[in-house]
Amino acid sequence: MVASTWFGLGAALIIGLSLFQVIINPEPLRKVLAFNLLGSAVFVLFGVLARRGGGRIDGVAFADPVPQALIITGLVVAFAATVLAVALVLRLLQAECATQDHDTECRIDD
């Protein structure tokens, strides 16, 4: 198998694992982390696409630049999302701790 296949399969595996966590784990912070991982796996997949779309000029391999550009944009978006989510988790904890006992768990699930 070629490397891109391995990377693709790896990305698929991570996507599966992190989707599982996002859906099953009731803790907000875990969800955020799992979501972050999910995003990263998708970007790995984009990297695979870049390699597959690439070619060779004068013997020098190059990758398709568009997916790479998409990765960079996506990273910024994912970063912003994570920051926002973590800020919300923090505020949620603060707000809950202000009103309730300290040992209550903060959940966003029903």
Partner: peptide, 15 residues
């Protein structure tokens, strides 16, 4: 509807 709004149910429904 209350059951549908549980996070795991909605997540699994999405997938």
């Amino acid at each position: 509807e209350h059951h549908l709004r549980a996070w795991p149910v909605a997540g699994l429904a999405l997938l």
